[in-house]
Amino acid sequence: MIEEHQIGEFTLITLLDGIFLCGTEMIQAAASPEGEELFKGAGLPASGPSPEPINAFALKRSNELWLIDAGCGRELGPRFGKAADALCSAGYSLDQVQGVILSHLHEDHIGGLIKDDGTALYPNATLFLSEEELAFWTDATSPAKYPRMADAGLFKLATSVLRSYEGAVQAIKAGEQVVPGVHLVPLHGHTPGHSGVQIESGDQQVLIWGDVIHSTLLQLRYPHWSIGFDVDPAQAVQTREQLLARLASGNTLVAGPHVTGIGKIRSCCHGGYKLDLTKYR
C-alpha cells in the first residue's frame, strides 16, 4: 500500500512493509479491563490483538530521494519486507535513494537495508542516525548489558547493516539538520538514541515519531503503557507523555512506522489523546 502527502516542496510517501499483531504479550498493561474495553470498542476480541502497520517512508524533493527507516527485510518472516517493492511500485528505483534516515536500529527499521547475502540494498545511499544511537549499537559492552537483545540477534544485525554501508554512515548530533528542511528530534527511551524525523517546508511540518507509539489504539489512550521492546521504559513513557502534550497544543502533523495515516494529535478521554485523520486522508 502506498500513501502520498505533500508537505510544502516535499512529497512524503508511506511504504507499508507489513502488518504485525500487537497484543497483551507486547503491551502487558492492556491485559486489564481498560485494555479489554479498547479492544472491544475497536471490534476486536477482548484480549486483542490489534493489527498495526510497519511502515517505511520515502521523502522526495525535486530529483532528491531519501528513505526514513527501511522496514524488516527478511528479519520477521515472509509477511514482511515489502517496503522496497512498494518503493519500486511508486515509480522509483533502489539506486535512486541517496540517503536513509534511521529513527533507531531495531530490526523492523533496518532489516530492509540489506540483501540476503548481506550487501547493501540501496547501493548509493548514506545512512544517517543519531550519535547516541550509533554509539549504543557499536559499544562492545552493550550485548553483555542487554543479553535479551543480544540473544535475539539485534546487535549482530546492526553490525551487519553498518558493515554493509561502511564508509557511508553519518552520525548526527541530536536536533541537527540532516538535509535542508529535515532534522532529527531526540525522543529517547525506546532506544538510547531513538529519534524522530521532523520535516518542514514553508508553513507546513510533519513529525515522523519513530517508535514513540506502537499501537495508536492502546498507547494514545494510555500513554503510560509501555511496550516490552523499550530499552528504558520509564524514559520512553516520559518522552511519549511530553511529546503528546506538546503536539496536542500545536499544528504539527504526525506519522509513524506503526501509525496508519497522517494527522494531528488532539486531547481527549481524561488524559488520553486521539489522532485526527479526517482532514488528511
Rank of each mutant, 00 (worst) to 15 (best):
E3M: 06
E3Y: 03
G8V: 03
E9Y: 01
F10V: 00
L12N: 01
L15T: 08
L21S: 07
G23E: 03
T24G: 02
E25R: 03
E25K: 05
E34R: 05
G35S: 04
L38V: 07
L38C: 06
F39M: 05
F39V: 05
K40A: 08
G41M: 08
A42G: 07
G43H: 08
L44S: 04
S47E: 09
S47T: 08
S47I: 03
S47Q: 06
P49C: 06
P49W: 02
S50D: 09
E52W: 01
P53H: 03
P53M: 01
I54F: 03
N55F: 01
N55Y: 00
R61G: 10
S62E: 08
N63W: 02
N63Y: 02
N63C: 03
E64P: 02
E64T: 01
E64H: 04
L65N: 03
L65S: 06
W66H: 06
D69E: 08
A70F: 06
G71K: 04
C72G: 09
R74V: 10
F80Y: 04
F80G: 04
G81V: 00
K82S: 11
D85F: 05
A86Q: 07
L87S: 03
L87C: 05
L87W: 00
G91A: 00
S93H: 06
S93P: 04
L94K: 07
D95W: 02
D95H: 06
D95A: 07
G99K: 07
G99V: 10
V100E: 09
I101S: 09
E107F: 05
H109F: 08
G112M: 07
D116S: 10
D117A: 06
T119E: 10
A120H: 07
L121P: 07
P123V: 11
N124I: 06
T126W: 05
L127E: 07
F128S: 07
S130T: 08
S130G: 10
T138H: 09
A140T: 09
A140S: 10
A144K: 11
K145E: 14
K145M: 15
Y146D: 15
M149Y: 13
D151F: 11
D151Q: 10
F155V: 11
F155M: 11
K156R: 13
K156T: 15
L157S: 11
R163Y: 13
Y165P: 12
G167D: 01
A168I: 09
A168N: 11
V169Q: 11
A171E: 01
G175N: 00
V178E: 01
V179D: 13
G181W: 01
H183S: 14
L184Y: 01
L187K: 08
T191Q: 13
P192Y: 12
P192A: 13
H194K: 12
G196L: 01
Q198P: 02
E200T: 11
S201G: 01
S201R: 00
S201A: 03
I208D: 00
G210D: 12
V212S: 10
I213E: 02
I213A: 09
H214E: 14
T216Q: 11
L218F: 10
L218S: 13
Q219L: 14
R221K: 14
I227W: 14
V231H: 14
D232V: 15
A234W: 13
E241F: 13
L244F: 02
A245K: 13
A245S: 15
L247T: 05
S249N: 14
V254G: 00
H258C: 10
I262H: 00
S267M: 14
C268W: 13
C269Q: 15
H270W: 12
L275Y: 03
T278R: 14
K279D: 15
